[in-house]
């Protein structure tokens, strides 16, 4: 039975909110790298919409994280003034974009998780969390429709597009398990009824992903999905440091300036 949400360890809640916010921040950052370089104008515009949605989610999640922390940090402070070891996103979202097929595949694998997660969070015991989830869910539902549709089309398109999508799937697969490996933070949130148990999300994710992959004529990789974990605890890939070097440059070079 859910405990009173106000009884939950605030440090754990802060960490968990950073996970939500950092996933959106880093994936949004990666997606925004496409701006002006998309494979066709319509896709360029669609990718920018996705990135804009994710930046919006970041502002909400990290904004709440700052409130919960109670140390006066804003969403911008959290985004621009933490170092890699304080970031709580999964490794999946920080990997480089690769080609457009990899970008779409990674988005799809994350969207399926994101969609199920937000769907469950709409019923969170913490009203603030439920409110953010309800706002974000509408956008993520569209993102998932779009990315799963593109996975199906490219998987079942030409021989080349099929092979590229299969290769993309193999590439990201060992990173997907991290989304479902629960640690003390996840368990505390589940116990408080703030967030769902990750095992529930995992089984729904499995269904969504395997249905789409089958329609896309793609084959689920045999290997372990949880090879690369640790991002949620602040142990990242080498790639995150470069993202932060770029993203945080102005805030770091001109401390205290207003923009």
């Amino acid at each position: 039975m859910a405990l009173d949400a106000t009884q939950v360890d605030q440090k754990a809640l802060f960490d968990w909110l950073c996970r939500m916010g950092d996933n959106a921040l880093i994936l949004g950052h990666r997606t925004s790298e496409w701006c002006g370089h998309g494979p066709v104008l319509e896709e360029d515009i669609a990718l920018a919409n996705t990135a804009l949605d994710l930046i919006g989610h970041t502002q909400m999640w990290l904004g709440l994280a700052g409130e919960v922390e109670g140390a006066g940090r804003t969403a911008d402070n959290l985004a621009y003034l933490r170092d890699a070891m304080q970031f709580r996103n999964v490794k999946l979202v920080e990997l480089p974009n690769g080609d457009i097929g990899q970008t779409i595949m990674r988005e799809f694998l994350f969207d399926a998780f994101h969609f199920e997660m937000l769907t469950a969070l709409v019923a969170s015991a913490d009203a603030r969390v439920a409110e953010i989830a309800a706002k974000a869910l509408k956008e993520v539902a569209y993102q998932f429709d779009r990315s799963s549709d593109l996975v199906v089309r490219l998987g079942d398109g030409t021989a080349e597009s099929h092979d590229r999508m299969q290769a993309a799937l193999e590439h990201f697969w060992p990173y997907t398990g991290e989304m479902f490996v629960a640690d003390a933070v996840d368990e505390a949130m589940a116990q408080a009824g703030i967030a769902p148990a990750l095992s529930e999300i995992e089984s729904r994710w499995d269904t969504l992903v395997s249905e789409t992959l089958a329609e896309a004529t793609l084959v689920c990789p045999e290997r372990r999905a949880d090879v690369h974990t640790g991002g949620k605890q602040g142990r990242h890939t080498e790639h995150l440091g470069y993202i932060l070097a770029e993203m945080q440059f102005l805030q770091r070079a001109y401390p205290g300036a207003e923009w």
Partner: peptide, 26 residues
């Protein structure tokens, strides 16, 4: 400069603007 915008809001504004350029091209 999209990936180096100094705040989340500036990043969103700049991205929306550059996206508009793509739309105008279209």
């Amino acid at each position: 400069w999209v990936t180096r915008a100094p705040t989340l809001e500036r990043k969103a504004i700049l991205l929306a603007k550059v996206q508009d350029e793509a739309g105008h091209g279209l």
